[in-house]
Design a binder for these strands. Structure first.
Lengths: 328, 328
DNA sequence: TTGTACGCGTTATCAG
DNA sequence: CTGATAACGCGTACAA
């Protein structure tokens, strides 16, 4: 059953023609091809069960029809939504997406970028950790097709980026809390290493400032997920407990909900909650939580389109696209 | 800025050695290599910014270090959990996973299988639609590494498969309903085209039979998602409304919950619910729903391990692994 | 219309 | 220890 790989040469031999003729046939250039040779080739291919080897073709053509997506955190629902949109787009153009998970680790990110480039993928869409500046710069300068997604890289780099209006959306959400009479508003966030979190915090602070409310650092909880419970414990043991809470992303939200359940703190009564992130099944909940939703599919499509343009060599100057979120 | 691709030949020239020597260096075979040549090569690589081309290597070695995962439905949370486990496993072995979404469409599945094989991926893990028997057979007979996941393919094929104990788990769940006194138990499912759904239905029927309850076909709702609401409407307008409901997977579950919300039917009071599927954030809900959870990560790891064994040519006879689910 | 010869960037073999 | 030389499977001028 060994069934040795059958190559173009085998087909040519079986059909009694040369390799180039077979190649012509495969690439549908049968304008100048005899009807009889065409049929012979067709038959030979069928009987031998020939399958072209795209690897060899890619080597020659310098295109693999693969693109890479490097997400910072694959358990982040928003990232998977974006990835699916990107995949859908490229599927229509016969390119395949390879999704890699950098786990918010700059080293891993570096490894993946290098690996995917070594494997000659045609372009990259990256949710950057932000810590590999030289690498980003290198790609851009070499004219390698790349689009950054969700998080900012250094301003100095002239690149295509897709972002959300983090600061503005947060500002409006917090404003809403204030309008409802809340004065003690907490902000819960993972470590402030990436632009999204910083921008959201910025929106929170500005909203308080503009409303003349003093910013109380004790209401700002910054922690890694494992430490979050302890910090929340402290937050809710203050004399002036928060009456409203802004969770800066889905992980923070989950930590908060688990904590509240444990402490039997009632949502809507003791505490109001707004979450910045897309949450699966959110519409099934009937708890009084507001969500700030990012238009993941649109963002994904846009990124894909921009990358595709670069791959197709359509010259266009890099630009930053900011998408508005909406609150539900 | 053009920065033409620098190849091994360039490095060799710059270092004043031959390509083969550079190749040796890259593959860390410097046992018999002069210290000075080693340094010259190292320097040349650095100054030229040389990056090996894995494509060319793959062509020669007949291994790409890519494996493919073809999921039937990528919006299915269970599938993504499994996929992540597979990715994690292969990442440890320096292989990358390419995830493709067949959308439960046999044509798409066929296209992906052919495409991935043409691109010479080293092996495939497939959530099969079940409709491409010849293709499956072909792979198996050619000794191509492949593992089937979640759904059965025809018995006649001697292949590695990973399954859940669909029938047994459903049996037990329905039994639980019966023990609680329920007599009118509905079963809601998408079209019965795949083994998982059929097996679950089988469990439902057996449980009723064994309890001496007659099977009422009107309580079995089989519909595509778009039609499901209409059919549920009919189900709940029967004189004898169901007091318990078994949702055969996540999509069915969502349709049911949306319907219930609309009709203001209270879970726990008017109706009890069991869902066969892993649902994200399920533990955050405090509604009285039971879930049958499949051990996605374990299943993914097992599949990965089995595929890896085949890729590494460890001979082992194909086997079917059935994992137990658990109810929470 | 078809065939020859070479290139794509590596690795494997084997002689020196 | 190092270097020719021939693969790997396909695409493509160019010649016939």
């Amino acid at each position: 059953m060994g069934m040795e790989k059958v190559t173009m040469a085998d087909v040519a031999r079986a059909a009694g023609v040369s390799k180039s003729t077979v190649s012509q046939y495969l690439n549908k250039r049968y304008e100048y091809m005899g009807e009889k040779t065409r049929q012979k080739i067709e038959e030979a291919i069928k009987t031998l069960g020939y399958q072209p080897n795209f690897l060899a073709r890619s080597l020659k053509q310098k295109r693999t029809s693969f693109i890479g997506i490097i997400v910072a955190n694959i358990t982040h629902y928003f990232s998977t939504e974006v990835s699916r949109a990107i995949e859908d787009f490229f599927h229509q153009h016969d390119l395949q997406a390879i999704v890699c998970n950098a786990d918010d680790d700059p080293e891993k990110e570096k490894k993946y970028i290098e690996m995917l480039r070594a494997k000659q993928v045609d372009g990259l869409i990256i949710f950057p950790t932000g810590q590999n500046h030289d690498l980003y710069k290198n790609m851009v300068e070499q004219g390698y097709p790349v689009v950054f997604m969700d998080r900012k890289v250094e301003e100095s780099l002239n690149v295509f980026s897709i972002l959300t209006d983090n600061t503005e959306s947060t500002y409006k959400a917090v404003q809403r809390f204030i309008d409802k009479g809340h004065k003690h508003i907490a902000f819960v966030v993972q470590p402030l290493r990436v632009s999204t979190r910083l921008d959201r915090l910025e929106g929170y602070k500005r909203a308080l400032n503009d409303a003349g409310i003093e910013i109380n650092p004790d209401y700002i909880v910054e922690a890694d997920i494992p430490d979050m419970k302890a910090k929340l414990e402290r937050l809710f043991s203050m004399e002036l407990k928060p009456t409203a809470l802004f969770a800066a992303n889905d992980r923070a939200f989950m930590a908060v909900v688990e904590f509240l359940k444990e402490k039997k703190i009632q949502l809507g009564e003791d505490l109001e909650l707004i979450v910045f992130d897309n949450i699966p099944f959110a519409h099934l909940l009937d708890t009084p939580i507001s969500f700030i939703i990012q238009p993941a599919r649109e963002m994904g499509f846009k990124a894909a389109e921009l990358l595709y343009g670069q791959i197709k060599q359509e010259d266009r100057t890099p630009e930053v696209f900011v998408f508005p979120s909406k609150m539900i």
